[in-house]
Design a protein around this nucleic acid. Structure first.
Lengths: 228, 228
DNA sequence: AAAATTTAATGATATTTGTCATACATGTAT
DNA sequence: ATACATGTATGACAAATATCATTAAATTTT
């Protein structure tokens, strides 16, 4: 089992404010686990009692609506942390976290986190910064969802996926999603998402190869996302 | 000018974790101000260097879309605090805060807040809890906006307004909003909002008296909001 | 109080989006 | 390799929602 002092996760977020000693303490108490593609790391409504560091793998954060439809709120990949919102607010988990591919994660008990929050104000500030940023992003998304037509939201989503996951060796966005998952991200029917993707391809704005998406004309995509 | 140790704001949120001495310090540095109806307390994109305590008055938190439409993200009333997200994330303000009626607010400089975060871990935790809760609410709203039809969203919004603002002596929800503001909350055209409100009145689920709204049948409203 | 402005209401119509049906493709298990 | 399941694609149609036009009501200004 690895050591937290060398983990990639610590380089990318609030954990970078921890001292060597604090990370050593994490190492002692942490548990590593593998989440298989399709499995849940967290489930909406459940309680968790710790923080998850995503070591490797991609996942989707979703919510089940009263009408039974899945809404994808966010995508997360290696280097991010999860669960801090829930342990800080003392509320149940608000989202399902489902692996899009096999994941390697570490679990650090709540007590360890709270201890450090009490001792290390720089860590606290970092966590606050992280959640504050997420809140701002969420507010942007509310506006996007409420006001923009499906076509614009699809364009935004494609750009956002490329920002989050980057590109593979052939220039395709480096994440595999079903058409249904894309539809559940933009909040539309699967058929509508498929049609709009086909249109974007016909207009040479994107290319499609199976589930893979390549951006051909970023400018047009940006314009569409802004309603032009 | 009042004293922070007696302020109503401190009873309702993170500030309740401050010691008498800490509140005294706030009192010394704070400035009080009056925001007239229609004026902005904060403006999207600007920087602020402190925390606002809302002493009295209601306001709306909005975002201007690329298409020029206003999206109302949230309503805030006396007792709440504003601006902590921005000072914590070191990002510009993400939302416009516009007074729906004359407001009395206090401004506390950023330095004072950061000092206390460093010293008082209970206060830090409280702030984190507050933002974490807001993030959860925002995620719920994303799902609501993305997946539910306008009618359902209107029902949700009416219930939410009654939760936030309560009722006046005649049983109407205690906030005055234009039809346009209601439309901008649920993310639809003003005409659509007007039509759907009229329908709810025809079905005896709500009553309308000018801009005032009274809930007559909470059960039906809840069912509509959940898609039945 | 009258005039001017803004807000609300409603009809007609266009556009967007969802639903249902069906065909085709792809992947998976036997 | 075949059968089965699942995902993708597309057409036809229905429902939801936006837009434009017009009138009525409420509010503000003069």
């Amino acid at each position: 089992m690895g050591n937290c002092t060398q983990c990639i996760v610590k380089r990318l977020n609030a954990l970078r404010n921890l001292t060597h000693e604090e990370l050593e303490k994490f190492s002692e108490h942490k548990t590593s686990l593998i989440i298989k593609k399709g499995e849940n790391l967290m489930t909406e409504g459940n309680s968790i009692n710790g923080l998850y560091c995503i070591n490797q793998g991609k996942c989707k954060l979703t919510k089940l609506n009263t009408n039974g439809k899945e809404q994808i709120i966010k995508f997360i990949k290696g280097g991010d942390i999860l669960g801090h919102r829930s342990i800080l607010s003392d509320e149940p988990v608000g989202l399902n976290v489902t692996a899009l591919e096999d994941m390697r994660v570490c679990f650090i008990p709540k007590g360890d986190i709270l201890d450090i929050i009490k001792e290390n104000s720089q860590f606290s500030l970092s966590i606050m910064k992280n959640i504050s940023h997420q809140l701002n992003e969420a507010n942007n998304l509310i506006s996007e969802m409420a006001q923009k037509p499906v076509k614009d939201r699809l364009a935004t989503t494609i750009m956002h996926l490329s920002d989050t996951f980057g590109y593979d060796s052939e220039g395709f966005i480096d994440v595999i999603l079903t058409r249904e998952e894309i539809a559940n991200t933009i909040g539309t029917a699967t058929e509508s998402a498929i049609r709009l993707l086909s249109n974007l391809k016909k207009d040479k704005i994107i290319d499609l190869k199976g589930k893979k998406i390549k951006i051909l004309d970023m400018n047009s995509l940006k314009n569409i996302s802004e309603g032009y």
